[in-house]
């Protein structure tokens, strides 16, 4: 049984140059005053960078197929956690109920409600 997976060592310096260029893009994008551009510069670029590192530096594309799936499942559990918790922590008021007593006691929660 072979235990060696052969990795083609690509031109890592080129990948690194792309990553640095993306970093500059995201810093420049953050100076924009358009909210959408800032968000794309921040998180869109981060996703691309993470993909490049995972593919080219961690060689996840030539690893056994189930390894990326395993990591994706772990991310999925975090997504489930987020989906289950967000209705309570992210939203302070619903359509049919509110937390009036808490708003009186806690100024910051009231502040969040006002800004929604």
């Amino acid at each position: 049984m072979t235990t060696e997976t052969h990795v083609d060592h690509t031109n890592y310096v080129k990948i690194w140059a792309i990553l640095v260029a993306l970093l500059i893009v995201s810093v420049l994008g953050s100076m924009s005053h358009v909210r959408e551009i800032v968000l794309i510069a921040a998180f869109g670029v981060a996703l691309v960078k993470a993909y490049l590192v995972a593919k080219n530096f961690m060689h996840i594309n030539v690893e056994k197929r189930w390894v990326p799936y395993l990591l994706i499942v772990c991310l999925l559990f975090i997504a489930i956690l987020f989906a289950g918790v967000a209705p309570d922590v992210l939203k302070h008021n619903g359509l049919h109920w509110s937390k009036n007593p808490a708003d009186v006691l806690v100024p910051s929660a009231a502040g969040a409600t006002k800004n929604e």
Partner: peptide, 11 residues
């Protein structure tokens, strides 16, 4: 009282 959310811990 300091802006946190005790429900988060429960979750």
């Amino acid at each position: 009282t300091r802006g946190g959310d005790p429900l988060l811990w429960q979750h």
